[in-house]
């Protein structure tokens, strides 16, 4: 499995792909992309790493248990949905910060939600793949 070319390439590819995934996530609201695709790209980056090296290394470089990512993402997504309730508006109503940030653009609860989706997708894909590879 561990061909040198693949492992060397992966060392470079991993950060690049992660960057791409974050980029996809951020631009998703305006261009094709978004949390799903972003998350999937990030997951494939780590799975590439897993194929090039092994599961333990992939786990180590991820640092967090992917299952925690899943939980965190789900939590973030649901919290973003709750915020509007505190303001007395219906569930999941988009709340936007007026200021426009560079790169990200406008920030609001839908974006937060998308980040949650992103985390869940990474967590889920990696949980599945790592589990299967470990067996």
């Amino acid at each position: 499995m561990s061909s040198i070319i693949l492992s060397t390439a992966t060392r470079f590819l991993l950060p690049l792909l992660l960057l791409l995934s974050v980029y996809l996530l951020f631009r998703g609201h305006n261009e094709p992309g978004g949390g799903f695709v972003g998350g999937l790209v990030a997951a494939s980056a780590f799975s590439l790493y897993m194929i090039a090296f092994n599961v333990e290394k992939a786990r180590r470089i991820l640092r967090i248990d992917p299952r925690s990512l899943m939980g965190a993402g789900l939590f973030l997504a649901s919290v973003s949905a709750w915020i509007s309730l505190l303001q007395g508006r219906p569930f999941m109503t988009g709340i936007w910060v007026e200021k426009v940030f560079p790169v990200i653009g406008k920030v609001g609860t839908p974006f937060l939600f998308d980040v949650g989706v992103y985390l869940v997708v990474i967590g889920v894909s990696l949980t599945i793949l790592f589990t299967m590879a470990e067996e």
Partner: peptide
Amino acid sequence: AKGRNVVNVILVDFRGFDTL
């Protein structure tokens, strides 16, 4: 909804509940 990609806006806002 402050987004140009309508599909994504549907996913995270108009029909965000589905996505949840």
